[in-house]
Nucleic acid binder design. Structure first.
Length: 725
DNA sequence: TGTTAATAAATTTTT
DNA sequence: TTTATTAACA
């Protein structure tokens, strides 16, 4: 077969990767080096040159978007449908396996996927049941720790024997959480993966079946795999080791979520005779931008080593803007975009990137007053919105009466006079009799253990659900959704409310009917399940950016994390200040600074033609003005790539922070007796404050501090004890 | 039981 | 500053 269309468009390194002999291969694909192309062409090569059957290929990604894109591109390349191929996210594929092997995995057939919001609610309920005070045991933290363990494939039973009370309590909560999930047939995101891993570990037949089935396994964004995912991949490929992994250690920015770059670093060791192929030619950014990004990432230790190059011209210099404050910063960015648009360019091609979402506010205000359309990414997605989850809870309860999370969510929504006391009783029965909330509620009503009012309300709720279920039986998904919204009273509930928020909710609910109407189960879905169940499972696994309306030509605002994988001709990387980027909380933990630096690298390499960097000397955060110091990352970019722009509305001359261009700032605070502008200190008499300015050396050092209580003061640290916070 | 005022907390988020 | 959650009230 002629495979020229597969290999001709590739450069040497790409071709080497695509045509690599069967066996373990690791492709280190730098930013903009054609990573997706290599993956899709590799699959094309396997099918059309190596004669693989599409059935034998499994390709796994992290996001639904990436999976969809890969599928589309393969179809385009091969001019063949890809229905036989297993292409999907880790969670999607594992979910499919669990549905097929639910019994072997120890799950009920109707197991339900809960998202992190459901998980949070459940953990709060458990803390409550265990009589643990939420003030001492913050549910968020408990949730985080449980997930942390799960991501390391550690069950509660495998937790290190806890000496201290903290450990023991976490253990109790984790055990109870596991029991509850098992009893209710609930599966959280990490559980989807962990169950599948355990299924493969413990069940030889299942393991071998799938090992034989998938001759070739391909993984995207390999640097983002966590412990479970890696172990599963190793099991899946154990007999032939045909794992084709593509990733970039320099773009590992999800370590805080359990992703292990180590998986990439030890690939060679774990997979015998692994081929390592580097894709270093960048097709995205102009020369100066790439050189600057390279210079920054070079400061990291323990890299696999890779230096991007480009044939593109040097292009423009990177512009650095020192703003007086965040408003000035935003004004500068917006007026620069206005010039860009006046030059006949698209707003779509512009991205404003920042470290934390809160920074978007200042930009939004300026964009709004300039009348420039924009879109902010991040925040709640469609299926994560409260009102949508409410509606889905009704649908879920109708599909499965035993779904406790759904019951809890909507039993009193809209308000129908079922309060905490009533619910407490139902929960008690549920706990003692090991029954679902639904069963318990029925029991409580029939045994007349409640005051008449409450009993009536609860009874009416039970009837309502039954009524909807009867009404909706045999109907299609769209009318089920519609009926649920009407009969539950949810829609009326929000319609009555005239506030702007409620208006939006009504619109979202109406949108849900449309989404139900447009829903088409993937060909890969289980035929056993009815449409409603498929729809509900899909809603949990794909929170849905998908059905978002077409957007007009508008400026894109997003966090650096969100920007990974995207590219824009014009990029603004904003808020380059110590404490913000790198973020304060990442300075406190070892290893996190390097991840911040990778984040910076990711941000810079998003830019194709022009890159603007900016920082503000004063930034208002949480309602307080803070003096800032320019980010150390700025000092890591060689001056030759930078052109500095001075603020026109700066009342005083631009004060460039001292450490800005000295390269010693690596571990931060050793310079001047440990003080730097921005350092938080505690003074015995004046309380807490922030260092604003430092003068002199050694014992003569004077430090100006802005105390939150008494304002600006000069302090001589040699005499007055200052405690660093 | 449902609404309102006080109070604490506040990166990043593919599923 | 904004947001979420809780405690106190009508």
């Amino acid at each position: 077969m002629d495979v020229s269309h597969i290999i001709d468009p590739l450069n040497d390194a790409q071709r080497q990767a695509v045509t690599a002999p069967a066996g373990p291969a690791l492709v280190l694909a730098g930013a903009g080096s054609g990573k997706t192309r290599v993956l899709t062409h590799r699959i094309g090569w396997l099918v059309q040159a190596e004669g693989c059957s599409p059935q034998e290929v499994l390709a796994v990604t992290f996001t639904n978007k990436a999976a969809r894109e890969m599928r589309g591109r393969i179809e385009e390349l091969l001019q063949l449908p890809t229905s036989g191929m297993w292409i999907g996210t880790f969670h999607g594929l594992c979910h499919r396996l669990l549905r097929m092997h639910f019994e072997d995995a120890g799950l009920p057939q109707s197991f339900e996927i809960i998202d992190s919001d459901d998980q949070y609610r459940l953990i709060r309920r458990i803390l409550n049941e265990l009589d643990l005070d939420e003030a001492y045991w913050p549910p968020r933290q408990m949730q985080w720790m449980i997930n942390q363990h799960k991501e390391e494939a550690r069950r509660a039973s495998q937790l290190p024997a806890g000496e201290d009370y903290q450990q023991q309590t976490l253990y109790r909560v984790y055990v109870s959480y596991e029991e509850t999930c098992q009893r209710l047939g609930l599966v959280d995101f990490a559980e989807i993966l962990l169950r599948t891993l355990e299924l493969f570990r413990n069940n030889q037949f299942v393991r071998e079946t799938w090992q034989k089935r998938f001759r070739h396994v391909l993984v995207d964004e390999f640097q983002d795999t966590n412990t479970i995912q890696y172990q599963w991949l190793r099991l899946l490929t154990a007999d032939n080791q045909f794992l084709f992994a593509v990733g970039d250690d320099d773009q590992s920015i999800y370590g805080w979520r359990g992703a292990k770059v180590e998986n990439l670093l030890t690939f060679e060791k774990d997979f015998d005779g692994a081929q390592i192929i580097r894709l270093e030619q960048n097709y995205r950014s102009s020369g100066h931008i790439l050189a600057a990004a390279n210079a920054v990432i070079e400061k990291n230790d323990g890299r696999m080593g890779k230096e991007l190059w480009t044939e593109a011209p040097d292009g423009q210099l990177i512009r650095l803007y020192g703003a007086s404050n965040e408003i000035d910063e935003a004004q500068f960015v917006v007026s620069t975009i206005e010039t860009w648009v006046q030059g006949g360019n698209r707003r779509d091609d512009v991205a404003i990137l920042y470290r934390s979402n809160a920074q978007s506010r200042a930009f939004e205000e300026q964009l709004l007053s300039a009348g420039m359309p924009y879109r902010v990414y991040g925040g709640l997605r469609f299926f994560e919105r409260a009102e949508i989850k409410d509606a889905l809870a009704y649908m879920r309860l109708i599909s499965n009466r035993e779904s406790d999370p759904s019951f809890e969510r909507i039993v009193n929504l809209p308000p129908r006079g079922i309060g905490t006391k009533t619910l407490e009783q139902v929960r008690d029965v549920s706990r003692s009799k090991q029954m679902s909330m639904w069963q318990s509620a029925k029991l409580v009503v029939s045994e007349e253990q409640l005051p008449a009012r409450a009993a009536g309300a609860l009874g009416r709720f039970i009837e309502l659900i039954e009524e909807i279920a009867v009404e909706v039986d045999d109907q299609n998904l769209e009318s089920i959704t519609d009926q649920v919204l009407q009969m539950s009273g949810l829609l009326d509930h929000y319609k009555k409310d005239k506030s702007e928020k409620a208006q939006g909710r009504v619109e979202n609910l109406e949108e849900l009917v449309t989404a139900a109407n447009n829903f088409v189960p993937a060909e890969t879905d289980d035929e056993e399940l009815d449409m409603l169940s498929l729809f509900l499972a899909n809603a949990a696994l794909e929170a849905g950016e998908g059905q978002a309306a077409e957007w007009e030509d508008c400026v894109q605002l997003m966090s650096l994390h969100t920007a990974k994988g995207l590219e824009f001709p014009l990029v603004f990387l904003c808020g380059l200040e110590e404490g913000l980027f790198p973020h304060q909380r990442s300075l406190e933990e070892a290893g996190r600074l390097e991840e911040e630096r990778r984040l910076c690298y990711v941000g810079m390499t998003r830019a194709m033609e022009q890159l603007y960097l900016s920082y503000a000397e004063i930034r208002r955060l949480y309602g307080k003005d803070n003096y800032t110091q320019a980010s150390r990352f700025l000092s890591e970019i060689p001056m030759e790539y930078i052109e500095e722009i001075r603020s026109s509305n700066l009342s005083r001359p631009l004060q460039r922070p001292r450490a800005s261009y000295s390269s010693n700032a690596d571990e931060g605070s050793q310079s001047r007796n440990g003080f730097q502008p921005g350092t938080q200190v505690n003074h015995a008499k004046f309380g807490e404050g922030m260092v604003v300015m430092i003068e002199g050396q050694g014992d003569h050092t004077r430090v100006q501090i802005n105390f939150s209580e008494v304002g600006l003061k000069w302090i001589l640290p040699a005499y007055a004890k200052l405690e660093l916070i």
